[in-house]
């Protein structure tokens, strides 16, 4: 393969994994906005989305579209339930405590999925066949186009939700200033619940669209969450567009490092670059330095 074709191939691959990372990063950002906490169960939701869809298709004999929708709805419900059971009852919901609780939540989620859905890797057929599409000597897997399309739609929908709907605006207000929002009658608690539901849905969608390409197993969640978190940090934590920029950057970094440096050390290279970005721009690519007040 000549240089251009290989580069193009790597870029395609990078963008499609990057889009998945971006979806996961949106989950981190939405919850970070409403709680200031890092949600360690985000990756488990991704894994759960893929596994539930696969089970619905395999054991449940359901059509692919129905199975995927069920998986996303189920995970979104579990996300909301998780919030009601753990964050909601807290007397002092500090960010660090919520973060730690989500670690426990992640452990519980992972082991429950293992107990109920089993330890075997599962997968299902890509949405529209496997015939690769050729472009300028490189090939694209049709599923990649689905990934890009669904990510784009989700991003636009999320943008619309936070910019245009009353509920989205209320959530932004609550994120900007909790006390002021509470004073004008916005329920901060409810906005945390909704953020968990949205984050879980984002994770589940990521899981549903990536599973046909990679398979999914109960312990994939940690790594996926880790990548999504990195993408969120890279773009600027709490920034919706940062998630997209961060996700795509991380995906491309990994693909290019894998293609040109070494496939064994690709994660190391990707994280090294991530560290350098972090040191050069401590608040992420799109992030702004926050002003500390005394």
């Amino acid at each position: 393969m000549d240089f251009e074709a290989k580069l193009l191939q790597l870029i395609f691959a990078g963008i499609s994994t990057g889009a998945v990372y971006a979806l996961i990063a949106v989950g981190f950002n939405v919850i970070f906005k409403s709680t200031d906490a890092i949600n360690f169960s985000q990756g488990e939701w991704v894994m759960m989305g893929g596994l539930i869809a696969a089970t619905a298709i395999g054991a449940g004999q359901m059509p692919l579209v129905i199975a995927c929708i069920i998986a996303v709805l189920a995970v979104a419900t579990i996300g909301g339930l998780s919030e009601r059971l753990t964050v909601f009852p807290m007397r002092r919901p500090t960010p660090i405590l919520i973060t730690l609780i989500t670690i426990g939540l992640a452990i519980c989620t992972k082991s429950l999925v293992m107990l109920i859905l089993g330890k075997l890797p599962v997968g299902y057929k890509p949405f529209t066949g496997e015939t690769p599409i050729k472009i300028a000597g490189a090939t694209i897997h049709p599923q990649s186009l689905w990934i890009l399309g669904i990510t784009a739609v989700f991003m636009v929908a999320t943008h619309f939700f936070f910019e245009r709907t009353t509920m989205g605006k209320a959530m932004r207000a609550a994120a900007a200033d909790r006390q002021a929002a509470a004073l004008v009658g916005i329920s901060v608690r409810n906005s945390i619940l909704i953020s968990f539901v949205i984050a879980a849905a984002a994770g589940a969608i990521a899981g549903v669209i990536i599973t046909p390409m990679t398979f999914m197993v109960y312990d994939n969640g940690t790594m996926l969450g880790f990548k999504g978190f990195s993408a969120a940090m890279l773009g600027g934590l709490g920034n919706l567009y940062g998630a997209l920029v961060g996700g795509l950057t991380l995906g491309l970094l990994e693909a290019l490092a894998g293609g040109y440096v070494s496939s064994q050390f690709k994660d190391a290279v990707a994280f090294l670059v991530l560290l350098l970005v972090l040191f050069a721009r401590p608040a992420g690519i799109l992030g702004q330095r926050d002003i500390t007040r005394v």
């Binding site: 990195s230 940090m233 991530l274 040191f279």
Partner: peptide
């Protein structure tokens, strides 16, 4: 890394751990 605050420090140290894990493995 210690010039970074809060979550950014957490991320930087997490990234360092990830790099070390790759090195131990590879």
């Amino acid at each position: 890394a210690l010039r970074l605050r809060g979550h950014y420090l957490a991320m930087a140290t997490l990234g360092f751990n990830a790099i070390m894990t790759v090195l131990f493995n590879e």
